[in-house]
Simulated assay, not measured.
Amino acid sequence: MSLRINIVLFGIGNVGSTLLAQAIESQNFFRQRYGIDLRFPVITNSTVAFFEKDGNPNQWEVNFERSAVPFSVDDIIDYVKTQQLENLVAVDATASAELVRSYLPLVQNGFHLVAASKIANTLHGEFYDQLRKTLAKFDRQFLYRTNVGAGLPVINTLADLHRVGEKITQIRGVFSGSLSYIFNRFGREDLSFSQILQAAEKAGYTEPDSREDLSGNDVARKLLVLARELGLSIEWNDISIHSLLLPDLNEKNSKQEYAIGKELLDGPYRIAKLTQTDGHVLRYIGQLDVASKKLEVKLVSEPESSPLGRLTGADNLVEIYTESYGQNPIVVQGAGAGKAVTARGVLSDILKIAESVKRTEAVWNKATV
Rank of each mutant, 00 (worst) to 15 (best):
V154T: 14
G267E: 15
D315P: 06
I5C: 03
P105E: 00
L246D: 11
N217F: 13
T169C: 13
Y128N: 01
S46Y: 04
E304K: 13
G279S: 05
A335S: 13
L347P: 05
G13Y: 00
S67T: 11
D139T: 13
G338V: 05
E257M: 14
I260P: 08
L113M: 02
A340Y: 14
D139V: 12
R221F: 13
L282T: 02
V62F: 10
T146P: 12
G261P: 07
A93I: 00
A21T: 11
Q327V: 09
Q276A: 13
T122R: 01
F142E: 07
K293F: 03
H162D: 11
G125D: 10
A68W: 01
E25H: 10
E361C: 07
P153M: 09
S67F: 15
L214S: 05
A314H: 08
I12Q: 11
Q170L: 15
V48N: 12
P268G: 00
L88M: 04
L288I: 05
T206N: 04
A49Q: 02
G177R: 07
E61P: 06
D78A: 13
A115V: 05
S233C: 12
R188S: 09
T275A: 12
E361H: 09
K255F: 15
K222D: 08
G313F: 02
R172D: 14
K339R: 14
A90Y: 06
N56A: 09
Y269C: 02
K352F: 10
D129T: 14
D349P: 06
S17H: 05
A159C: 12
K366W: 09
W236K: 15
I5W: 01
T94C: 00
Y34A: 01
N56Y: 13
L288S: 01
A116N: 08
R145K: 14
A68N: 05
G334M: 04
L244S: 08
L143Q: 10
L38H: 00
F10I: 01
W60L: 03
L295H: 02
S96N: 05
I36M: 01
R344I: 07
A115R: 00
L99V: 03
A272Y: 12
R66C: 06
R163V: 12
V300R: 06
L3P: 06
L246E: 11
V91M: 03
V62S: 12
V219K: 03
A21H: 12
L317H: 07
L99D: 04
D75G: 00
R172F: 12
A203W: 10
S292P: 02
N63A: 09
V107Y: 04
I320N: 03
I271A: 10
H162K: 14
L223C: 11
K81R: 13
E212K: 15
